[in-house]
Design a protein around this nucleic acid. Structure first.
Lengths: 108, 108
DNA sequence: TCAATATCTCAAGTATTATTGAAATATAGG
DNA sequence: CCTATATTTCAATAATACTTGAGATATTGA
């Protein structure tokens, strides 16, 4: 993951509706959820949910797969890990106070 | 760190000049750097550097301390860790593919 | 093919954010 | 006190992003 990809991913998450979409999709795991279900879960009109989902997909943080009439979105955990890894490894040079906040159990 | 603080921090980093400022300040560690030195390092006019530094400070990612004529900025590593920890722990529920990207050596 | 469902695209309005240069503030030293 | 240095604030402009509703596209089943 390069700098501009990370900037796009950070910008994608720096928005309330999109951060909530991501959190909701994390709970759905590999099952994912349809655009309609997601819009309902985060209380957004369909066009608004669609706009935010495409922003997340463009940033590579979610994947989209059509299943008959529905389009199923899923978190791309590798992309999330790539973005977070860039912040920790590349930006913060694995500074101990940053690394201390990773993993289970919650430490920060 | 709560949701809106994380959103502000993510937004602060989702900008080229500011991400570069952060990376530069990480290399400076606890010494920090003055606004002028930072502006020069990231090739930004003083008013622009000041604007971006205040955005980072408002988001809590850097601290500012006046030392005679200079204002010394430093990365707040705890805040960085808090933001990253929120993404890993709270948003991604410590999903293994995300946690795998943390720490030394670089794995993602 | 037609109707229903699911989702996306588009345009308009609004809001937020970034850039620039000029002016203002704060500090230190002569 | 005056000047030089360091940094911020302000105003104007430009660019980008968000929301909304209407209309377009895609898919399925009757």
């Amino acid at each position: 993951m390069n700098e501009s990809q990370v900037i796009e991913a950070l910008g994608a998450l720096a928005q309330e509706t999109r951060l909530r979409i991501l959190r909701f999709l994390v709970t759905k795991g590999s099952d994912g959820a349809s655009a309609g279900e997601i819009g309902e879960a985060v209380d957004a009109a369909s066009s608004r949910a669609s706009f935010h989902l495409s922003t997340l997909a463009k940033a590579g943080l979610v994947t989209a797969e059509r299943q008959s009439r529905h389009i199923i979105y899923r978190v791309d955990f590798d992309a999330m890990g790539g973005m977070i890894g860039y912040l920790i490894n590349d930006c913060c040079k694995n500074h101990q106070d940053v690394v201390a906040c990773c993993g289970t159990p919650k430490t920060c």
